[in-house]
Design a binder for these strands. Structure first.
Lengths: 200, 200
DNA sequence: ACTTTACTTGACGCCGGTTCAACAGCGGGA
DNA sequence: TCCCGCTGTTGAACCGGCGTCAAGTAAAGT
């Protein structure tokens, strides 16, 4: 580990690059250890940079964590845009495929992101909740646009709760799938699809 | 706040009572704030004891948190014992009623407990995972005992994943319900029941 | 009253988060 | 080519909460 730490020539990156690099390291560490077991020092060391620099980019450790979460939340929202006009049943399979692909590609970030709910402070939670709410809205909108469910669906208060529950279902299954992929992506996809249709 | 702190006569409790009291205070605080925003000092102050006493009962802050989580996990397991011989569909409604009643009665502990997954270290996570696995086993066993699903069910690897996902569903819905109870317990119960039957 | 033991007090070391003044690499102007 | 200013970056010191410990205090049981 840390093979090229000591002798690496000091490189000066642009603020954008450095920020991105730090967030990547953060995502990895926060995905592997709970919040308070991640030391700023550790992040800096892996990034090949001093502790102080981190505080130049992020005011506090919490803000750093929040930035990691926010970055993942943006990536996630960008990825999961709904396709209008297509029946929910068809959109669902394709959407889940994209989603699960994203989960595999950004496993660290995904795990770190879903830590925000239980490990974050008010601000971090807010970012997390906003991302969840956005996904929720996308799904509800897709449901409302489908004749099978109809625009009336939005008025049922339990539907919101059902969608939120289903998101938790999908998240839990995805995380478990990351931990030990004994099932194929198609199986996981079908499982999640069945769960949503079953609950409606 | 802390109305009866200063002038309260020093009370001497049995180790069991004191331990219980500290765990209760911990459950409340850990349910309201993330792990690292809870100070040992704060716990002690609310309990009306000295910092030192906490370290007399629990070696470290982590152990304290772990004890809080473990206590809730025990309570939960004790509460959710399955009734053998009854069809799943009937058992489900009754079981969920008990569960949701427990959630309301021990809201703080319930919230604190579900923080273990993302905020705890390896040891705490282990306690959490053990509790989840136990619930999982109870459900799978109940399914296997029912002729509608049969003992073959246990062999389907996706079923375990489905049950785990459903637990996450129920947890998310319960937590949301605690935050803002716009739905009745019956509605939540039916929603969760439908989710399980739908996914199988 | 005497014993037991829950409990307090206060001082200390340690360690990780946070601050800040100084330093050093890189681009631009002469 | 040299110098200069901008800004990325450093290193060390500070702070506050965790965890330790030894010596004591006082509430219950007998």
């Amino acid at each position: 580990m840390a093979a090229n730490q000591g002798e690496r020539v000091r490189r000066r990156l642009s603020t954008g690059e450095r920020r991105e690099q730090l967030l990547s390291v953060g995502a990895r560490l926060f995905s592997e250890s709970p919040y308070d077991e991640v030391w700023i020092e550790q992040v800096a060391e892996i990034a090949g940079v001093s502790r102080g620099l981190l505080y130049h980019y992020f005011p506090t450790k919490r803000d750093f964590f929040a930035a990691v979460v926010e970055r993942e939340s943006e990536r996630m929202l960008r990825m999961s845009a709904a396709v209008p006009g297509v029946p929910v049943r068809e959109q669902l399979a394709a959407g889940l495929d994209t989603y699960l692909e994203h989960v595999r590609a950004h496993a660290h970030g995904y795990r770190a992101f879903h830590r925000a709910d239980a490990a974050g402070d008010q601000a971090v939670r807010k970012v997390y909740q906003r991302a969840l709410a956005a996904q929720e809205r996308q799904i509800l909108a897709a449901l409302a646009a489908d004749p099978e469910f109809g625009p009336r669906a939005l008025e049922r208060p339990e539907l919101r709760l059902a969608v939120r529950g289903w998101l938790a279902f999908t998240t839990a299954v995805s995380l478990e799938w990351l931990r030990d992929a004994e099932l194929s992506r198609e199986q996981v996809r079908d499982l999640c699809a069945r769960a949503l249709l079953g609950v409606l």
